[in-house]
Design a protein around this nucleic acid. Sequence first.
DNA 1: AGCTAATCGAGACGGTACGTCACGTCTTTAG
DNA 2: CTAAAGACGTGACGTACCGTCTCGATTAGCT
Lengths: 227, 227, 227, 227
Amino acid sequence: MAPHKAPDSSRRSDRSRRAIYDAALALVGESGYRRTTIEGIAARAGVGKQTIYRWWPSKAAVLMEAFLDLAARAAEEASPQAGGTGGETGGETGGTDPQAGAAEYGIPDTGDLAADLKLVLRATVDELNDPLMEAPTRALTAEGIVDAKLGAEFVEKLLDPQLALYVTRLRAAQEAGQLRPDADPRIALELLIAPLTHRWLLRTLPLTHAYADTIVDYALGGLAPRS
Amino acid sequence: MAPHKAPDSSRRSDRSRRAIYDAALALVGESGYRRTTIEGIAARAGVGKQTIYRWWPSKAAVLMEAFLDLAARAAEEASPQAGGTGGETGGETGGTDPQAGAAEYGIPDTGDLAADLKLVLRATVDELNDPLMEAPTRALTAEGIVDAKLGAEFVEKLLDPQLALYVTRLRAAQEAGQLRPDADPRIALELLIAPLTHRWLLRTLPLTHAYADTIVDYALGGLAPRS
Amino acid sequence: MAPHKAPDSSRRSDRSRRAIYDAALALVGESGYRRTTIEGIAARAGVGKQTIYRWWPSKAAVLMEAFLDLAARAAEEASPQAGGTGGETGGETGGTDPQAGAAEYGIPDTGDLAADLKLVLRATVDELNDPLMEAPTRALTAEGIVDAKLGAEFVEKLLDPQLALYVTRLRAAQEAGQLRPDADPRIALELLIAPLTHRWLLRTLPLTHAYADTIVDYALGGLAPRS
Amino acid sequence: MAPHKAPDSSRRSDRSRRAIYDAALALVGESGYRRTTIEGIAARAGVGKQTIYRWWPSKAAVLMEAFLDLAARAAEEASPQAGGTGGETGGETGGTDPQAGAAEYGIPDTGDLAADLKLVLRATVDELNDPLMEAPTRALTAEGIVDAKLGAEFVEKLLDPQLALYVTRLRAAQEAGQLRPDADPRIALELLIAPLTHRWLLRTLPLTHAYADTIVDYALGGLAPRS
DNA sequence: AGCTAATCGAGACGGTACGTCACGTCTTTAG
DNA sequence: CTAAAGACGTGACGTACCGTCTCGATTAGCT
């Protein structure tokens, strides 16, 4: 049960790691997660199988890291200067930190909570509908649903940082009197996020901007008639 | 890719079908879905592999049917005479029902929408937390997330019938003036259901009765302060 | 330690068995035994690896059987009529018996023991020097030297039947008064055979017809001066 | 295929060389030659793999040198002063000697050729039956049978020096009139040695003192009846 | 009641991928 | 420059399952 009998990570080949990330993402995108094999990744990356087995415990773990790396690089590219002028939130702007993605942008605070949420949720809808991201994200999520350990990592490294942004924004709204003072932001956010996830994961009905807007309206206004 | 070249189903061996259901469920319960193999099911069921390949297109399809069968039998056993007139709670034991079963009971209508919803959602929480159902349900859900076709079947046969009950109850609430007249019940229900599913699937935080109650309160009352 | 959990040999594919023999012999001839792999044999034979592992315990065992089959077919071809007119010995002429080779010819008996032995030993020299047989025979012998079980099979199926011919001929010579009455034929034959084998295996000095003749002369006449 | 690009052997670590010899012999003794690996030897010797690859071309070469070294040390220990004038029996402990060791003793010459040969051949039988020597000697021999280059080295360094002793003794016998004047000693010796080697390598029948005696009798006296 | 055709248990087959092992090369750090 | 250490690309190992195919032996459903 020792996680891997840790090899000397200081001697690790960066070139191989990069090539493996690229190959993994490419293959999952092209053929889907099921048809992607470790042998395939190794071959495509020009790398020995053992080099994968040495550093990762499973195909899912490879993909997860590749995914995190992708997000980190995307984030780094989008905001190499940082500076914290506006909605700077998490503080996790360390360029080397793989835990990143869109997380550090924060949710805008224009004073209009409904508008801000709609903006962000519409962006989420677009992201979920992006066919490029779809395959790997679904694969990873499905894997996490079945494999508790992987799921925990997924939540910790990808989901929680994003949810934290909502908590921050909702707390600000609370101080501004736009959110019930007695509402728990951590729960409130689930009313907003979960319906989108639900539609996306289970493909019950199409996931649109209109749907995002409606969810915000219903969640903020409540389903019961206003007196 | 021929749909299956349907063999003569009238000659089908019922004994084998039953044995395959049992073996499939047992193996998934014991070893998890990933480690369950078609060969294993065949061996355990004392059946030739071909008998499985003849009637099902995939391991997931076998499990799905086994699951539906299990639910159907459970339902049949629980209520051969039907009924469910009042505050019948256990009705929500379904979740697994193939349109038979709890689906017929519907959601109770005591006139108090919040109370009725809490009752039902608490039952759903209990069901999701039931360790016996957990492995196969997760497996099936995860599979459906990745395999669109299977997912569609999952939604159609398992999920939609349940959601229809919510639509019915919410429409009644609307007529009773307990729900905004302009609210779309099909969307409204997602505000209630999705947060539970979200916590269960992604294991972000514990899924409790209290959480179910809170969701109902937030969803009905709205997150914005009442003026 | 169960030899192989015996699969049903009546369903065995003859085509595959043949193809495997051919591939094995071809590859050993082309690249040598060391560089011949089970994967290579399977690929060349157009056969799944498992089909080899199902029926043979090792690469050496495959080659051994291929070799025996080769010898059996060669023998069958050379004498399909049998008939036992002359030195018919072993009686093992069953066309289906893989234990065969040159064995059934027997050693000629012209009445002149020395001449007969020289004839046979010269043929053996030629056979050992045949470059086609060399690689597989050396491989098999070497393998048998290290692996006692395989060696026993080698001796039983290939060597012993041949040595039996010498025993027969030597016994006849004994009755004809051309061999010491007190000599054990089974040991006597080793004086004749072993030196050839020795030179061939260890490559100490060239293995020629002249050497074979000399061995016969020395062995029959003795090294000590005749009184 | 460059012979080895000989590194500066003056800087070679003696400690490592010794450790490699020991590890190699130990592992071959424990697990057999096939299961002994270069990585295993390196690990057991506490040595880098490269240190082996730098100085030896193959696993067989390592074992061969280890073997020669073992014999040399054994010989050095047994007789730093030399001697061996009479019925010295243990002299034949060599068999393994790299021209040092027993090779110097030669075969005793008591005037009775048959007795002397029996003495020496019985010692050889004992040596071949020694379970300690068996594994590595078989391994080396088998390797030499397949690998011509290694075989040549084996013959040159181990076998030829021993055979030379027989040539010497037989020539002496010839001068003493105990061996046919027209017999080639180099060939004659093979009549004596080869049968033992044959039984040992191929395991046809047990290798005993009695067998050695019989071989001497048959070879000297001849198989044909004395007139 | 007997015939015939499909289904059944069984499992061999050609394959693909698995995860492990050892190969021989290369690179890094220490002496 | 050698040595220990060990990561690397490579490739074979032997195993597990895949989905297809082929075998008798039941076992319906029709004549």
